[in-house]
Amino acid sequence: MTVNSIQGKNVLIGGGAKNLGGLVARDLAAQGARAVTVHYNSDATRADAEKTLADITGAGVEGYLVQADLTTADAVRTLFARAGEAMGSIDIAINTTGMVTKKPIPEITEADFDRIFAINAKAAFFFIQQAGESLTERGKLVTLVTSLLSAYTGLYSIYAGSKAPVEHFTRAAAKEFGSRGISVNAIAPGPMETPFFYGQETAESAEYNQHAADLSAFTRTGLTDPVDIVPLVRFLVGEGWWITGQTILANGGYTTR
């Protein structure tokens, strides 16, 4: 096992029950992780989390579940404590949690604002903070954001706005944690082919993203397949450790800077 290999490492995945988080959990287990702790938010995703756990343990890897609403610092601290206790240490931390709100600015309520910033910005910050305190030497930290950070569009003001601070958290953490060899990055997929996307879209806007080939450099679709993000996560938490402090747009050319 090399120092930057996934083999033998202990992994914590925030939002690891399903969609991209579930795919990453299964992939890192298949890559030889020693143990994977899957976080899920509530009873609504427990069945998905249990299925992901079964796949992890079926691959011969230790697996654990932790339920938590990560919108408080105490909950994030407890998540890392429980994961560390279960696995013995945490080498890799990946946060895929997030929430989308798509509304015109005049329709956004204070409750909308507070909820989405709690999930996308506050939870992300304290996840990064706890990773800095908990990760082993030369650990790896990845947060999922959105390619809308580089888009010029309406209706996603507080979604993209609540993800934007994570870029700054990532850069600062990369500097602060770098003396311990910890790499810190953010991955910004384009709109992904998951229920997470369709829950906010009308039939018309979903069809536009699905079929407007000019939105992407490729002709397959305007949407990102979560399967195409998994190898990037794998690389950043393995041999790609020299990349740090970056927000990587992974969207097939959907947007750029």
Rank of each mutant, 00 (worst) to 15 (best):
L135H: 09
L232G: 08
P191Y: 01
F197A: 06
Y156R: 12
A123N: 13
G132W: 01
A188G: 08
A123D: 10
Q129D: 03
V142W: 11
S162C: 00
G132P: 01
A172Q: 15
P191G: 02
A118F: 12
L215Y: 12
A203K: 15
R138N: 12
T224D: 09
N120S: 05
D112F: 08
V166G: 10
F125M: 05
R234A: 03
V184L: 06
Y198F: 03
V166M: 05
I128C: 04
P231L: 00
D225V: 09
E137G: 04
R171Q: 06
F127P: 00
N185V: 02
F218Y: 14
Y156S: 14
G199P: 05
A164R: 15
F113M: 07
P195D: 07
N120A: 00
R171C: 00
Y159T: 09
E137F: 09
A111M: 10
A124Y: 09
T143C: 07
G199F: 07
M192K: 09
A121H: 12
F127C: 09
G181Q: 06
E167V: 10
T153C: 00
Y198C: 08
K140Q: 08
S157Y: 04
A186F: 02
R234G: 05
H168W: 11
F177N: 02
S134T: 08
Q130G: 03
G132D: 00
R220W: 13
R138T: 07
L236E: 08
I187A: 03
F113R: 14
L144I: 13
Q130Y: 10
F113W: 15
T221D: 07
V184A: 04
L236K: 14
T136C: 01
L155F: 15
A213R: 13
E193W: 15
I108Y: 10
Y152F: 09
L223F: 14
Y198N: 08
H211F: 10
D112M: 04
A173N: 04
A131N: 03
D112E: 06
A174K: 05
F235R: 15
G222E: 02
T143Y: 09
